[in-house]
Design a protein around this nucleic acid. Structure first.
Lengths: 144, 144
DNA sequence: TCGATTCACTTGCAAAACACAAGTAAAAAT
DNA sequence: ATTTTTACTTGTGTTTTGCAAGTGAATCGA
């Protein structure tokens, strides 16, 4: 439950500030799950990718919630489950994640991307932004 | 001199791949120095910002060099000094850093940016890209 | 209805990364 | 010749991470 972050407010540089919030190995992957992969539950995120540790996931969800990047509601089908989703602030990271993803793909062509996200790596930024934000809005209309 | 990275090749996801390379607190700040701040020497980077540890700086320069994001030449005025600079691969991070910087600035308005970089936060992406790349080319013509 | 399972976390501990201070060797300045 | 500068390295303690094993409440299945 440590809320202390060694790098908080390290600098008046906006890049450093951004890295204080999202500059670790896991935070952006969690946001990616919420943004692109349709994974909104703790368990789904745990099972996804390469296996984040449960304590790290818990810690990052807590930090993201307290910095108001994400929020959660109880799952309609179960009281113990939660549905996490991106706030507007969290959604505003879309351009960052898009550029990082495009860059990562350019560096390592062996990477795989689900077909419905292929266009993220090739199409125009504005088109991608619209598509993603639309899909998030759709989800919100169903669950919020 | 540890070259091991616990997160290398964690995933076939391009975002995860990108984070394996630049997803720590210091790497992007070093690249920012080379890209925007005109800091090309070890000592300048050490003195900059909030104080990176010398061993961490050394380690990151080594990693960035081995992943061919940066390279170095001996300083024309001194044999023991080095001039670091971005390779094409390193320069290709410009859109990523630009978006992160813009995002960081939007989150924390109290951040300060040197005047000649103000337009990074407001103007068009393409204009900024040209300006930055031109300034890097200019530097290269002088020192390489 | 009642034990088994699922879920969202905690806890404990070892390993890795990091920060800080001090040191080093070669080059350059005095 | 001595001191200072530069680009690192080394040592040590602290913080963060990864992994395995809980935990307690909710839900399932018989």
């Amino acid at each position: 439950m440590s809320t202390k972050n060694q790098h908080q407010d390290r600098s008046p540089c906006p890049l450093a500030s951004a890295l204080d919030i999202v500059g670790d190995h896991w935070t952006l992957l969690i946001i990616r799950d919420l943004m692109f992969m349709g994974r909104h539950e703790y368990k789904e995120m745990l099972e996804a990718w390469e296996g984040i540790s449960s304590n790290i996931l818990s810690n990052r969800l807590e930090k993201l919630t307290s910095s108001q990047m994400i929020d959660s509601v109880p799952h309609p089908e179960s009281k113990r489950r939660k549905l996490y989703y991106l706030t507007e602030k969290g959604k505003s990271l879309l351009p960052v994640i898009a550029e990082l993803t495009i860059w990562g793909f350019a560096q390592k062509k062996s990477n795989k991307v689900p077909p419905h996200l292929k266009e993220l790596l090739t199409g125009s930024r504005t088109k991608l932004t619209k598509k993603v934000l639309n899909s998030l809005t759709k989800w919100e209309k169903t669950y919020l």
